[in-house]
């Protein structure tokens, strides 16, 4: 099968996956004890006299299958509903919060990969030597650390200590500094500040956006790099044991070429799967990191929606997340096909 028809098939499958996820989440939010779906539409200021009307308006008195039908009807018309905890329609919330999370995730993944992969390779090449032990200790320690503690420590050292000692410091939270926000203005095309400032050709905005990314992205990267490094190490060890590596050395290839061309590229295959999965789960939001670093993304939205019994928001968030997962998996499969000629679709 050709790649294009494979992608098409997967996209068609996506529709069914989303349908299934939607029905499931809808039923779960309705089945959860103590969550009256009307919570999504009222506040303490709403008089109880208005409740019957609100129930009527949102079809809450109808049987579940009728409710689902109304909901699907709206979705098919592009209306995912209004998420009160976000104070905006679901589609708008996704459009606003997703780019923030995407930016953080991409930065964290870049940092994570650029550290974890060399470490994994080093660890495998120096298997059971001190370099290997040191690497494993570092990776285990960093990925076992509590996110909030790590985040707080990074803030304390790289913002507070540097700043009170009059040294240049990194911003502790948020996505842009007040003075840059006040003095520079850019057009947001993508919602990714770094990309937008490049598109606008605004250097101060770019520098400021990047500096805001450092601490949260490092925090996320430190806790997520452990798995990548370990997978890299083990698949590297496995590949290094293959005959073609012996062969490549036997052929007289320089070690550098053997490692990079033959071992590394093949060892990347299992690593790609793991990186893809962790990328997808990061894309659905890292609640704690987003909270600590005041990074308004998917995680914050989901947490707020759950705390506020905002069923519309929860369903919307789940749909967006499911879409992300299916799409990222698709991309991983395509990357796989590029990396590995054995795979065809």
């Amino acid at each position: 099968m050709k790649l294009s028809s494979f992608i098409l098939r997967r996209l068609i499958l996506l529709v069914f996956v989303l349908f299934g996820v939607a029905v499931l989440v809808f039923l779960l939010t309705r089945a959860a004890p103590g969550i009256d779906p009307i919570f999504a539409y009222v506040t303490p200021n709403t008089p109880s006299s208005a409740y019957p009307v609100i129930r009527e308006q949102h079809h809450l008195n109808d049987p579940l299958y009728v409710q689902i039908w109304y909901w699907f009807w709206d979705v098919l018309h592009g209306d995912l509903g209004y998420s009160p905890s976000a104070g905006m329609p679901v589609s708008m919330a996704a459009a606003i919060f997703f780019p923030a999370t995407a930016e953080l995730t991409i930065a964290a993944t870049i940092i994570s990969l650029s550290v974890a992969i060399p470490l994994g390779i080093l660890s495998a090449l120096k298997s059971n030597k001190w370099q290997d032990h040191a690497t494993r200790l570092f990776v285990m320690t960093s990925s076992s650390m509590a996110v909030f503690w790590l985040g707080l420590m990074l803030q304390f050292v790289f913002f507070y200590l540097l700043r009170v000692n009059g040294l240049p410091s990194l911003p502790p939270a948020g996505r842009i500094s007040p003075d840059v926000l006040v003095s520079q203005s850019i057009t947001h095309y993508t919602g990714l500040n770094v990309l937008d400032s490049v598109l606008n050709g605004n250097l101060p905005y770019l520098v400021d956006s990047l500096s805001h990314l450092v601490l949260p992205a490092t925090t996320l990267a430190l806790v997520s790099m452990g798995l990548t490094a370990r997978i890299m190490r083990s698949s590297m060890l496995e590949v290094l044991g293959q005959d073609y590596i012996t062969m490549a050395r036997g052929k007289g290839l320089p070690e550098r070429v053997v490692i990079y061309k033959h071992a590394f590229k093949n060892a990347m295959l299992p690593t790609t799967t793991v990186v893809g999965l962790s990328f997808a789960s990061l894309l659905s939001g890292a609640v704690l990191t987003e909270k600590i670093f005041a990074w308004n993304g998917m995680g914050s939205w989901a947490a707020n929606a759950a705390l506020a019994n905002d069923t519309v928001g929860i369903i919307g968030f789940t749909l967006v997340t499911a879409t992300i997962f299916v799409c990222v998996n698709l991309v991983v499969d395509i990357v796989y096909a590029i990396l590995d000629p054995r795979i065809s679709y």
Partner: peptide, 12 residues
């Protein structure tokens, strides 16, 4: 020439 023709060539 190795025993296993599957592992003795770089699949890529």
């Amino acid at each position: 020439v190795f025993q296993d023709p599957f592992s003795s060539m770089d699949p890529r």
